[in-house]
């Protein structure tokens, strides 16, 4: 069965390594913070100026001066720090952040990503996404394999305006874990109960399928 959003977040959480500073985007990526594997210690960076972001506050303890990049009320953990936006992006551009997890509307087989604009329909802006994808060494994209019309979002080439070029290395969808290498998608794992055929049929980009494709363990 295909994963739900929580499942995608749980699978991405398995990628976390001890001592990493991690930036989580809005949407599914935010959920990753709820599934940090036991024994792993990571710090979450929020680009509006926090290192050491904690969980949502208890009701009645919200502080309007303390929000995350999604403008949600938040708390901080012991040892947290606050800083301005230029310092925040110095951390990002300077590659002091080890992992970036973000959502996408489209990803292509050479690692291009589009997630900020649908011409004539939706223009919300790129926020920090262009800075993040241009500089991060390790980017995981959390997304659905197809759009609401059933069209694949895992493409030979992106059709929407790009956020970054050649930057994505790994994609986790409700169906599969894919790696991007040598201008192709490589099928690494499939969601529990999802067939290789289904993944092939829902992937428009070139997909390399090994003889044996393990199921994810969540």
């Amino acid at each position: 069965m295909a994963l739900d959003k929580t499942g995608i977040a749980k699978r991405i959480a398995q990628e976390l390594q001890n001592g990493w500073y991690v930036n989580l985007g809005i949407g599914i990526p935010t959920l990753v913070a709820n599934y940090i594997p036991e024994g792993i210690e990571v710090e979450f960076q929020s680009e509006n100026g926090i290192l050491g972001m904690g969980p949502f506050p208890f009701e009645g303890e919200e502080d309007p001066d303390l929000i995350n990049a999604g403008k949600q009320t938040i708390t901080v953990r012991a040892g947290a720090s606050f800083f301005d936006s230029a310092t925040s992006f110095a951390m990002i551009r300077g590659q002091h952040v080890q992992l970036t997890v973000l959502g996408a509307m489209e990803v292509s087989q050479n690692g291009d990503i589009a997630n900020w604009k649908i011409p004539g329909k939706m223009v919300k802006g790129m926020g920090g996404a262009m800075d993040l994808v241009a500089s991060a060494e390790n980017i995981i994209v959390a997304m659905m394999h197809s759009n609401k019309a059933g069209e694949s979002k895992i493409l030979k080439a992106c059709t929407l305006p790009l956020t970054g070029v050649g930057c994505v290395r790994k994609v986790v969808t409700e169906l599969a874990v894919l790696e991007i290498r040598d201008g192709k998608f490589h099928l690494i794992e499939r969601a529990p109960g999802v067939s290789v055929e289904e993944i092939i049929s829902k992937t428009e980009g070139d997909l390399v399928v090994p003889e044996f494709v393990p199921e994810m363990t969540l």
Binding site: A86, S88, F89, D131, A134, V165
Partner: peptide
């Protein structure tokens, strides 16, 4: 891009007329 916006303001105040960044290339 948010980081470029922050840095462009910082540069404006710091007397640096322009800078190179990877954000937005392509």
């Amino acid at each position: 891009p948010q980081g470029s916006l922050a840095e462009r303001c910082r540069a404006g105040g710091a007397g640096i007329p322009a800078f190179f960044t990877p954000a937005g290339y392509g």
